[in-house]
Nucleic acid binder design. Structure first.
Lengths: 238, 238
DNA sequence: GTTCATTTGTGCGTATGTATA
DNA sequence: TTATACATACGCACAAATGAA
């Protein structure tokens, strides 16, 4: 069984990246040039490049070119005391998070279940995007009971930290109660939001945070770029 | 911006599955038939089918045809007391696990680190595949200290349960200490082992189990089909 | 066991659309 | 505006796997 054309070029470029012959940010030859150089069709080149893009090794940008990815994978620690900033900053990553929108809505079924609210209760919905070194890595939605945390999103935006925001509401501590996760392919807008190739899958992470006594205070659904993050959990009490 | 051809047929088939017009196990029309019916090229049909296969909605089999997937996603609970059988059986899933190979090897670096062994210590390496309703969902490798658990793999195969096997070595209880996870595209052999389309990504899960006092007793690296499983964790003590 | 039709997989050429600089 | 580079799309040919005759 001879190797397929497209896997040959995929592995060649992959090796070039691993070995350092190509480094972060470098522009690759155009599809046409690669096709000529390897004496294969442009379709085979595209297939190879797509495979590399799916693994986050390169970034394909229409009209500009194809580039070696310049962001190493982050490791996101999920634990009882999951804190985004403390989590990613130690990796030398500049984490910023931006509020996209803040709304007051009737709790969707999933949310009312998670927060133990009566169906139809009012909740605040804050949509945020998270960037690591200015590159989007995740975006999603957090829900808080509107009665208990009326202007959560706005305060969070001013205070700059979730922990501080809870404190301002008299919640001195909170823990991650539940996390679930699955992979699926990205929708077109999701890929655009994350500035990633449409074929890169996403990890959908649903979480519930609670006060230490077990009262749920927020639930969130965050879409992570599967190519830019690893997840880890310690199953101790920390 | 008008919709692309391939997304139209992708969404049409996706809707047909969701609505029940197509049900689990049904064979789809051939690529040629779909191309004719939708008056688009075969490449566009293939692209649509690949997208559906990546999400585990259909199963494409060379020489046979294309079928609606007949296995719902499993939910795998990762927790301090992670037990494969107790985990999946309650979902009405018939879980079987088969020993592929058992070896005694010098501990790879990662393994010696995880198990707190001196570098080069002997460990047993058991390769297993896990099937849910006869469909592969995961396969991987577990490592145990060869001195403490000399014939772990063989005993495990006879006893049929990891918990029982540990008990036979005098380990009455064990807990999950650490789990980490990331997504990447599947290698060709991995796709073949999991009997899935080559474009379906996998989730690579690395774990360390320990006795309740914190002594690590095993580490494993398991490749899960990203299309066939969800992961969930409770961050309580259970 | 072999042959053959069927169906998906790989590969190339070509044309045209769209985003970027 | 123009040139460049990636995106979509169609047609065709042949390879490889499957299953039935």
């Amino acid at each position: 069984m001879t190797r397929e054309n497209w896997t040959i070029i995929r592995d060649k470029i992959s090796d070039d990246i691993r070995s350092g012959r190509l480094s972060a940010g470098d522009q690759l030859p155009t599809e046409k040039q690669l096709a000529d150089r390897f004496e294969i069709g442009r379709h085979s080149v595209r297939r190879a490049l797509e495979a590399l893009a799916r693994d986050g090794k390169i970034s394909i940008e229409q009209g500009r070119g194809t580039f070696v990815a310049d962001a190493p994978r982050l490791t996101y620690q999920i634990g009882k005391r999951t804190r985004l900033r403390r989590n990613l900053i130690p990796q030398g990553v500049d984490v910023t998070s931006r509020l996209i929108s803040a709304n007051r809505v009737a709790a969707p079924y999933r949310v009312s279940q998670a927060l133990l609210l009566s169906s139809g209760a009012r909740v605040t919905e804050s949509r945020r995007i998270t960037l690591a070194n200015d590159l989007p890595v995740a975006f999603g939605c957090a829900y808080h009971c509107a009665e208990r945390f009326p202007d959560f999103a706005e305060r969070r935006d001013v205070l700059g930290s979730t922990t501080e925001t809870y404190r301002s509401f008299g919640v001195d501590d909170y823990v991650r109660q539940h996390t679930s996760l699955f992979a699926r392919s990205a929708k077109a807008e999701e890929a655009k939001t994350l500035k990633q190739h449409p074929d890169v899958p996403v990890l959908v992470v649903t979480a519930i945070d609670a006060t230490p006594d077990g009262t749920p205070i927020s639930t969130s659904r965050v879409i992570w770029s599967a190519a830019r993050v690893n997840f880890a959990t310690e199953h101790s009490d920390g």
